[in-house]
Design a protein around this nucleic acid. Structure first.
Lengths: 165, 165
DNA sequence: TTTCCATTCATACTTTAGGATGATTTTGGA
DNA sequence: TCCAAAATCATCCTAAAGTATGAATGGAAA
């Protein structure tokens, strides 16, 4: 006995070769037709041109049918940009263009980030193992480059420009 | 005289009918070939099957060529959705639960918001038409209720809790 | 090698922020 | 009407922030 799976596989093989089978059948029918026509036109000799014409038409149609059936469809890939409401703001991409334009140095950016975390200058100095004066200098440069007057403004502007998360 | 534009339009018309012209030429050539073959095979009568076969092959090829050239190409459109991270969630919904829990008054929230905009106490006082001392008092209460020590921390925490945008 | 820039630190000074405390006035409900 | 919370303002003081200026160092580019 055949299992359901084997049956399904056989069916697959049949459908896969459907076109070949159809082509074979068509050829058989055509050959039979030709033989019949040949017999007919052996008697009626003057219909030779009609015979040739019919052959031409039939085989032209066969060619058209063949190519239409066998021609592989062109696959056209259309990429549609689908706006996904990215709920999680977990992804932060730094605006390197603005960062470059402002000319903030690495250390200055570090200080700015710690400022945004709410740390005091003294705490930042401790975190970065430098003196309070150094942080003040960095902070001043940051305010200068960001064209602001206070750290709160610096943080606000930096966040607005996507320089910090 | 023809203008450049008229010339271009004529060329368009020619190229547009190129396929029809080619088809016509092909037919002419084939007819000539058939006539020649007919003459040949009037003498050699037993080559009739070859003649028919050639006609069949030629016209099959013609059919294939025709359909390939003239038939509209099958286009299978595959739509690939490309997720595009839509920018900032422009909608800000205030966390009234947290606001309630913290017990911030209306004026305190106002002051907090202006703080987040980077304004100094003096500027906030001017904006709200009250004295600097009043703002200091409000600020102190805000820090107390938010359990922070500095305005930068207050702004950071308020934003984190979605109390302000 | 020289020059430029980032980083570091210092000193002195001014401004702003923040804490502590007390007081007055407004206002929305019980 | 009375009360509690909110809002207002003041004074005194300390802490932190911010400005100005100068300078040493080290690395990278010209």
């Amino acid at each position: 006995m055949l299992t359901a799976n084997e049956l399904r596989m056989k069916w697959h093989a049949i459908t896969r070769n459907r076109q070949n089978i159809l082509y074979g059948l068509s050829l058989a029918v055509l050959l039979f037709l030709l033989k019949w026509l040949e017999l007919r036109f052996l008697i009626i000799h003057h219909a030779m041109e009609i015979y040739i014409g019919m052959v031409a038409v039939i085989f032209t149609a066969l060619g058209v049918w063949l190519s239409l059936k066998l021609a592989r469809p062109k696959v056209q890939t259309v990429i549609v940009e689908k706006p996904v409401p990215v709920s999680a703001p977990a992804t932060f991409s730094m605006n390197t263009v603005e960062l470059d334009r402002l000319g903030l140095s690495g250390r200055e950016l570090e200080v700015l980030q710690l400022m945004a975390d709410g740390l005091s200058n003294q705490e930042i100095a401790g975190r970065l193992f430098v003196s309070l004066n150094t942080i003040k200098t960095h902070a001043s440069r940051v305010f200068e480059k960001l064209d602001v007057k206070r750290r709160t403004q610096a943080v606000e502007k930096a966040k607005r420009l996507s320089i910090i998360p």
